[in-house]
Amino acid sequence: MTETMIRLQVEPLTREAFASFGDVIEASDAAHHFTINGGNTERYHDLAKIEPGSDGRSIVSIFRGQPRALPFTVEMVERHPLGSQAFVPLSGSPYLVVVAPAANTPGVEDLRVFLARGDQGVNYARGVWHHPLLALDGVSDFLVIDRAGEGPNCDEIRLDEAGVIEF
Rank of each mutant, 00 (worst) to 15 (best):
G138N: 02
F114S: 06
E51D: 15
A100N: 09
G163S: 08
R43D: 00
I59P: 01
D155H: 14
E166I: 06
N40Q: 12
E78D: 09
A100I: 04
I145D: 01
R7F: 02
E150A: 13
G151R: 09
A148T: 14
P52K: 04
P89T: 02
M76G: 14
F87L: 12
L133E: 03
R64T: 15
S84V: 13
T14V: 12
V108A: 06
L90G: 01
A27Y: 01
Q9S: 13
I145M: 02
D141E: 08
C154A: 14
G83M: 06
E51H: 12
R15Q: 12
V77R: 03
L133N: 02
P71L: 11
V122P: 05
L96P: 00
I50D: 01
F18G: 08
L8R: 01
L134I: 15
G163Q: 08
L111M: 03
L82F: 08
S84P: 11
F87W: 12
G138Q: 05
E161R: 08
V139F: 14
L115A: 08
I157P: 08
E16W: 09
I6G: 00
E166N: 04
H80G: 08
T2D: 11
D146T: 06
F87G: 02
I36D: 07
F114M: 06
G56I: 01
M5V: 15
P106C: 11
R43Y: 10
H33K: 05
